[in-house]
Design a protein around this nucleic acid. Structure first.
Lengths: 216, 216
DNA sequence: CATAAGTGAGTTAGTACTCACTCACAAGGG
DNA sequence: CCCTTGTGAGTGAGTACTAACTCACTTATG
């Protein structure tokens, strides 16, 4: 449950790639920061060159179009950074101790909403970009797929077996929990609302437990 | 529960405004269509002129910048069209017959998800524009405020009085129902998913009723 | 010294915006 | 009933600017 800054993870991932000159790495990092704060369209190649401390020609040395540059920025993000964050989340989940639904949901929700708060900008821009670019969306989904198809379902199935959870489709249960979580996530990320996480989570979990407990 | 196309409502609203020459009206209508299909930034003034069947000069005769043009397009949308759609929704809600929570939620959810399906594009563009433009967001909220502060709370309070609904804060209950609804709305509007509304609504209502029924 | 990395002053394309002009029509004076 | 004048709508070629992209050249490096 350590705090996870996508940006610094990304920086590490870029630094660890071989076959890329220092200045090109600076370009990629500058892009991530600029895209996150201003969005892709609103960022000019001149902005990028300035922020990276290189000339415009350098920006175009490796990456021939702005579009290719976006691909180059996003590729390690999806292939390394996000999977790493997802893995960390999976690890956290697998190490929570819980004997009932509430004890599982509370730290999980807190974990994700904290993550959302700490990475607002990047999540927002990634989300908006993905909405208008189906290919990007597909890659984004792919990069968190394992969490959605393994980690979470495993917990749900376990809770179902122990009769701590209603016996509905796993996907269906996940949908409801995700909707409630995404509702708060959207308030934080998209609308910049400051939430009192403690209250909000306690109440949301109370509702979810009520709605998802098996009939006695 | 009649189908409500924002675009045709808007067209009527524009036609009924005085003090605006025919060609200027065409410009506004063309803008709504183009903004909805391509987005604001991606739409050029040349596109607008062509679609409206006027010259570029005409586009700028009344509206001095593209930004002002957006304002001019959006203003009647917020002051007339959306309030009209909201009123129709309020009317529908007040005329549903229901003796329990499920009977209220089902037609309401169906009504909104149908509306979302029929107005995908406009909702998507309005949503994305509102996310990156706080002033627009404020106006959007204002235009549906009455529904959020009167129509829905009235129903919730009534259900609470009749002990058909758990005795939580009205705002809190609304949040959960909206989250679940918005979850499906997002799938339809943002990710173009085709949902089997019947199944999805029946199941969601089953969950909501379970989670929101008062303790016996 | 050959190859890769880097430079920055261009070029080019596209887009928001302007302006000198035409046209249709209405009001008013002879 | 014409003619003049005024006005607001409309035009489209043109301008100013911006932003992506190029290239002849310089500098560093194995």
């Amino acid at each position: 449950m350590a705090s996870t800054s996508i940006e610094s993870f990304y920086s590490e991932d870029i630094d660890s790639t071989k076959d890329l000159p220092q200045k090109q790495k600076q370009v990629l990092k500058a892009c991530l920061e600029l895209f996150a704060s201003k969005g892709f369209e609103a960022t000019t190649t001149a902005d990028i060159a300035k922020k990276a401390g290189v000339s415009q020609g350098t920006v175009y040395k490796r990456f021939n179009t702005k579009e290719q540059l976006l691909q180059a920025v996003v590729q390690p993000l999806f292939s390394k950074t996000i999977p790493r964050a997802a893995k960390e989340f999976s690890y956290d989940i697998n190490h929570f101790q819980y004997d009932n639904l509430a004890e599982f949901l509370k730290p999980t929700l807190r974990n994700r909403l904290t993550f959302a708060t700490e990475n607002k900008q990047i999540i927002k821009i990634l989300f908006m970009q993905a909405i208008s670019d189906p290919q990007l969306l597909a890659e984004l989904v792919k990069s968190v797929k394992s969490v959605l198809t393994n980690t979470i379902p495993k917990v749900i199935d376990k809770l179902k077996e122990e009769h701590l959870l209603v016996d509905w489709d796993t996907a269906r249960i996940m949908e409801y929990v995700l909707s409630i979580g995404a509702g708060y996530g959207a308030q934080i990320v998209l609308f910049d609302r400051k939430l009192d996480l403690d209250t909000v989570i306690d109440q949301a979990v109370e509702f979810l437990v009520k709605g998802l407990s098996p009939e006695k």
